[in-house]
């Protein structure tokens, strides 16, 4: 693999993991977060601090990043209980700025100069080449996607879906919606923490400006472009928006303009994202193929 391809896979993979994390909150539970970069930062800084100050091995850093991400994000989820749904998005934006400010102003966290010169990632004494690192990122991505799929089959996943659709009705059926919101934040925090740890070790350094509000917007754009609520959408959107700026390098200055245009277009033309478009296209293709009699989609039976 070329170095260029490897970096696309690693960054695309890290963004995809973060998009899966956001999907847990917004897609599964209907909790809109525009502060995902803060949860990402918690993982990245945990890994960087542990590697530099405590000299813990790579995998231990990663595991603790997931744990710290889960606990702290879960705690922030308690805030979500205090605000009405419409204000949740503002609360998460506030959390994003707050977390970045804390990392920026406290010398213990490296301040504005960040934390640099992380050791190379090693597993069992073997240094991970960039190529191996790319495989590892893909493996972690596979794991969180599989876990997300599995979650949907559980009572927790079913309860979160009910919460997303109608919180009052969910409560009336015995679903502890307050506890479930905190759990959703904690799970999203675990996944974001993993993404942060992987990001920190790949770059070898972390800076507060890596985790600004625009990063949260970017992750939301990935998810919306791919298809909110779908895991395939989270992955496709993340890799597309990672590769796109590289492909359109001459337009690099207009990156956020293009991102904004894409978002507006998707929301207006295909609010269910690329996955939604693909699904509709497949359905119509199947119907045109004259196979409607095998598995017609509900309510679309042809009446002669």
């Amino acid at each position: 693999m070329s170095g260029y391809l490897i970096s696309i896979i690693v960054f695309g993979g890290v963004w995809a993991i973060l998009a899966v994390s956001l999907n847990l909150l917004t897609g599964e539970a209907g909790l809109v977060s525009l502060g995902q970069a803060a949860f990402f930062a918690l993982g990245a800084y945990t890994s960087a601090l542990l590697a530099l100050r405590a000299e813990l091995p790579f995998l231990a850093c990663l595991a603790i990043s997931a744990l710290v991400g889960g606990v702290l994000t879960g705690a922030l989820g308690l805030l979500a209980l205090r605000v009405r749904d419409d204000f949740l998005v503002f609360t998460t934006i506030g959390v994003n700025f707050l977390v970045v400010a804390v990392f920026q102003y406290f010398e213990a966290f490296g301040g504005a100069l960040g934390l640099v010169a992380l050791p190379f990632a090693e597993v069992a004494g073997v240094r991970l080449t960039p190529q191996r690192y790319a495989w590892l990122v893909l493996a972690v991505l596979g794991l969180v996607v599989a876990a997300s799929f599995a979650l949907r089959r559980t009572w927790l996943g079913t309860g979160l879906a009910a919460l997303r659709e109608d919180e009052q009705a969910a409560r009336a059926l015995g679903i502890p919606t307050r506890a479930y919101k905190v759990v959703a934040f904690a799970l999203a925090g675990v996944v974001a923490g993993l993404a942060g740890g992987l990001y920190a070790f790949y770059l070898g350094s972390v800076f507060p400006q890596n985790f600004g509000f625009l990063v949260s917007i970017q992750v939301m754009a990935m998810l919306v472009l791919g298809g909110l609520g779908t895991l395939a959408g989270a992955v496709i959107g993340a890799f597309l928006l990672t590769a796109l700026p590289e492909v359109l390098r001459p337009l690099a200055d207009y990156r956020y303009t293009i991102l904004g245009l894409i978002l507006i277009l998707v929301v207006m033309v295909a609010p269910d994202g690329l996955v939604g478009v693909a699904r509709r296209w497949l359905t119509s293709l199947r119907r045109r193929g004259g196979q409607a009699e095998t598995t017609p989609p509900a309510g679309s039976e042809a009446r002669p």
């Binding site: 559980t154 009572w155 927790l156 079913t158 879906a161 969910a170 679903i175 506890a179």
Partner: peptide, 22 residues
């Protein structure tokens, strides 16, 4: 699924059973 959601009252608040298959 609308009905299955309502069948989980013993599992939802349980820290382990909440990860059980619905």
């Amino acid at each position: 699924d609308n009905v299955i959601v309502a069948l989980g009252r013993a599992s939802y608040p349980h820290p382990l059973r909440t990860f059980g298959r619905a």
